[in-house]
Amino acid sequence: MRWRLVMAWLLAGSAGPAWAGQLVVRVSDSGGHAVGDAVVSLMMAATASDPAPRPVTRYVDQRNETFIPYVQVLHPGDRVVFRNSDGTRHHVYSFSEAKAFEFLLRPGESSPPLTLDKTGLVAVGCNIHDHMIAYLLITSGQALVTPPQGQVVFEHLPPGHYTVKVWHPQLRPGQVQPSVEATVAEDAPAHAEFALSLIPDPRGFADREHLDY
């Protein structure tokens, strides 16, 4: 009987990592309101590099003269497709160092898949509608985008010390990217909080609280 218990324990241990560390990150503005579309990224003080995730294809829609989503995280090797769901033409472009491109899309058309092979920030615009803006953040590390509730949760983290950084397209110009230190343990969730000073949304007149993201 004892050897069966030992074998069961060994098999359970070989099924995956033993840690179950969790980090909860909340992002708000200077008035205490939850902030969506913030990119929260993690960097561990010392760890072996994780294997590169399998490339995926993401989509950026154009509806009501708005790029949806506003902010998206991708990894090197991922592809992005721009889709025009409006009744008007869009001229999608970027001059960003990480990826430069342009697509003229008629109503109902989609761009060919565009491979993002470098890390960095890609600012996307429309050459016909100046109020249309979107951002693609390409990173090789762990990163999540906050929903409107302003909170993300990183699961299954190895215990240790982390640097947590946050970026938002409406951070005030010249502001240093906010960062905090967090310690993740196995027995209780770790927490980090940010209060950002943001400029007004530059995307124009659309009622974005009622758009279907």
Rank of each mutant, 00 (worst) to 15 (best):
F154Q: 09
T115C: 00
A100K: 14
E97N: 12
Q149I: 07
H129G: 07
L116F: 09
P113N: 12
V92H: 06
V166M: 01
Q149K: 01
L114R: 00
H161K: 14
V153D: 14
N84F: 00
L121R: 15
T163Q: 13
M132Q: 00
T163Y: 13
T115E: 15
P158K: 06
I138A: 13
Y93T: 07
Q170S: 11
L136D: 03
Q175I: 14
Q149V: 12
D130G: 09
V92L: 03
V145E: 10
Q175L: 14
G150E: 06
E155R: 15
F103Q: 04
A143P: 05
V124T: 05
V166E: 08
F101L: 08
V145K: 13
K165Q: 01
D86I: 03
V153S: 08
S96H: 09
P173R: 11
A100V: 02
F103R: 01
R83G: 01
G174W: 09
C126V: 10
R83W: 00
H91V: 11
L104T: 14
L157W: 12
G160R: 11
V164R: 13
S94W: 02
F101A: 05
P147R: 10
F101T: 10
F95Y: 15
V153Y: 07
N84D: 11
Y135A: 00
L104G: 03
I133N: 05
E109Q: 09
T115R: 15
H168V: 14
V80C: 05
V145W: 03
